[in-house]
Amino acid sequence: MHYAMDERIKKQLPLVCIVGPTASGKSSLGIHLAKVFSGEIISADSRQIYRGMDIGTDKALPDVNQDAVPQAIGRLIPSRSGEVVHWLLDIADPEELYTLAQYQRDALHIIPGIIKRGRVPFLVGGTGLYVAAVVDNFVIPKGNDADQYKIRAELDVRLHTEGLQELYRDLCKRDTDAAWQVDGKNPRRVIRALEVCILTGKPFTQQKKQKKSRYDVLQLGIITSTEEREKKIRKRVQEMIAQGFAGEVQKLITKDYDRDLPSMTGIGYKEIGSWLSNGGSVVLPLPEEVIEGIVVATLQYAKRQMTWFKRDKRIHWVTDAQEAEKITRKFLQM
């Protein structure tokens, strides 16, 4: 079905977002709605951007048939998965630095083309900052790439020599509000916030300025009970292991990717990478403590995601595809 958008929608640049915690069913709902309303999907997942990291990120893999895929936009090459065009998958190698500013620029570059083709853009993913950068049109501090790499490298060295706690203390001195806005146990977020403070000379938490949104936005969130979420996460972890997650991590290690890279510190990659680097082998079953470590880390991440998204009162929370379809149809026909 090709969904004909009216003039109001064409002028106001519609954007439908599907958010929620990991393992909630965002990807399947996104594909379903994109099929119903002739849409294309822009991934909002900070791990799915990396090539060679498919199983552990639950990436939508390309269909065998790649006919009728839109033309690439520079280095941004779309793919067809589940009979739906996907953007911003496999756009960086694991060792590449890919910033929030780059993501915002890429997404904002893609969306107008989708609308111009008479289709509906669906922003789908659980990386809250990615979604907010597009929906709320953040003004993101710009820095020279060379300076950014230099500062990032220096902070990585400090992380290993001084420890995360000392970096977090430094951040809180530079930015008093960081104590409650930045997760002090997440090295990547602490380093990112410090990096911005150093580059701009201003507190990180004061820099999320917004310009007027470019879009008429509908945000849908998938809500599940805590018990159902844990059940789905445990099932997903077991499925990933059965699909060869350990082998995928081994291939990355064989390519000499540093285990401290942002890509390699993702959930599952970190735990399995540590086990493999300490005598583990892909020919051996993963120890239960490694599997449970992945499950616990995923549950904690899902909890943080829900905390982030629940703060946004604009999100319409749904429990199934039928409810989401009804709300989306009303939005597109207003």
Rank of each mutant, 00 (worst) to 15 (best):
S277N: 15
E325C: 15
G118M: 01
G280F: 13
M264L: 14
I267P: 10
E248W: 03
R214D: 13
A68L: 02
K232Y: 04
V124K: 01
K10E: 06
L13F: 08
S263G: 13
K310V: 05
L29D: 07
E154A: 15
P187N: 11
I223V: 10
Y98I: 04
V64C: 04
L252D: 02
V282P: 00
W308Q: 01
E288Y: 11
D258G: 09
Y50W: 06
K35F: 01
A242H: 03
L286I: 15
M5P: 08
E271K: 13
P287L: 04
W87G: 10
I115V: 15
K211F: 11
S225V: 03
R304C: 05
L159G: 04
R8P: 00
M240Y: 04
Q250T: 04
D260W: 07
Y130H: 12
C17L: 07
A178S: 10
S27A: 11
K35H: 15
D136H: 14
A72G: 00
D63M: 00
I140Q: 10
Q219H: 01
D216R: 14
G113P: 00
N144Y: 11
I233C: 04
S274V: 13
M306C: 05
K212I: 11
D58A: 14
V190E: 12
I241T: 01
D93M: 13
D183H: 12
Y168E: 09
R169V: 01
T205A: 02
T265E: 11
K326T: 12
V295N: 02
E154M: 14
V217A: 10
L199Q: 12
D54L: 10
H2T: 15
Q243I: 02
D136W: 10
G221Q: 08
E323A: 14
